[in-house]
Design a binder for these strands. Structure first.
Lengths: 158, 158
DNA sequence: TAGTTAGTTTGTGTAACACAGACTATCTAT
DNA sequence: ATAGATAGTCTGTGTTACACAAACTAACTA
């Protein structure tokens, strides 16, 4: 697999495969999530919040790459279920610092257990250790080069 | 829910992360794809066709997990651009065997090169070898436990 | 005090679907 | 041969997950 005429090597882009597998996963996950009153987008938000920690609402919108106005609605739903908390930032009282609640973390963990069968179906071609590798790569990519979103914001402002 | 010894280890589910990264990738890819007249869904279809080889239209719909009627439209667009070919199956003349054309494979490769910057942005936290690992895992997962869709069909029928 | 920013609310529009119905060509079993 | 099923097509309709705009409040900043 190592290459000398690097030029002739086919390019390996993950985008489409990522999209494809995410869709397959999402379709099945919907069925598991529905009885709990969650939809895939909620799970993504919770997962991102867990992976990167609480952060101002705007930064969350940036992470999710969603329009701020739509994030409001998403958070309203999550907050109504007490899975997420909006706290006023003490430094800047306009800001809402969004954080996963204990209930949210628990719910997320619970749902993830229920999602075992889904993952088994979609990632059936991978063995346990390959799945773990995949998870870690995805997590690392999702976390990004910057350790936390608040630091990212600070960096931008400085 | 009886009391498992609740494994202290958190469960590692890829679904949400997959979804999240796929979205980030897709949003950026749209801009690159648009000038070529392609949208993300087209890229997914082409990628799946390359990964799993030509197959009857129904099997393609099953792979993409899309409704058959919508696949018709998607293929119409791809065929209009000569990226894909529908050939009548000789065994069963009702069937359309869908295959990537040479032009399609070339276009796909070309677009993938153009997507380098996108991938760099989204997977920036991963180094080259990690990205290669990720690609191979995704490809393996996408191919599934069954080597090719035609064989899958044969297996089902036997 | 004026201007700006974070978040909210209420719209409007669009793209990517699912799903239903009717149709054609073709296959299969009787 | 004929009847029924099957692959694909076409033309709808509805839903969801968004983007984007406008107008508003509360709070910060100059």
């Amino acid at each position: 697999m190592s290459s000398w005429p690097v030029v002739n090597q086919p390019v390996h882009r993950c985008g489409a495969l990522l999209d494809h597998l995410a869709r397959r996963m999402r379709l099945r996950a919907e069925a598991v999530l529905a009885p709990v009153g969650l939809r895939p987008r909620h799970l993504v938000a919770l997962t991102v919040l867990r992976a990167r920690g609480g952060c101002p609402q705007q930064a969350l919108a940036a992470m999710l790459e969603m329009d701020g106005t739509n994030v409001v609605g998403l958070l309203n739903e999550l907050e109504a279920e007490k899975l997420v908390e909006r706290r006023r930032s003490s430094e800047d009282r306009r800001r809402h610092v969004v954080e996963l609640t204990d209930a949210g973390a628990k719910q997320l963990a619970k749902v993830e257990i229920a999602l075992a069968a889904v993952e088994e179906e979609v990632l059936g071609a991978l063995d346990e250790s390959q799945r773990e590798t995949l998870y870690n790569l995805l997590l690392q990519a999702a976390r990004g080069r910057v350790p936390s979103c608040t630091e990212a914001i600070d960096a931008e402002l400085s």
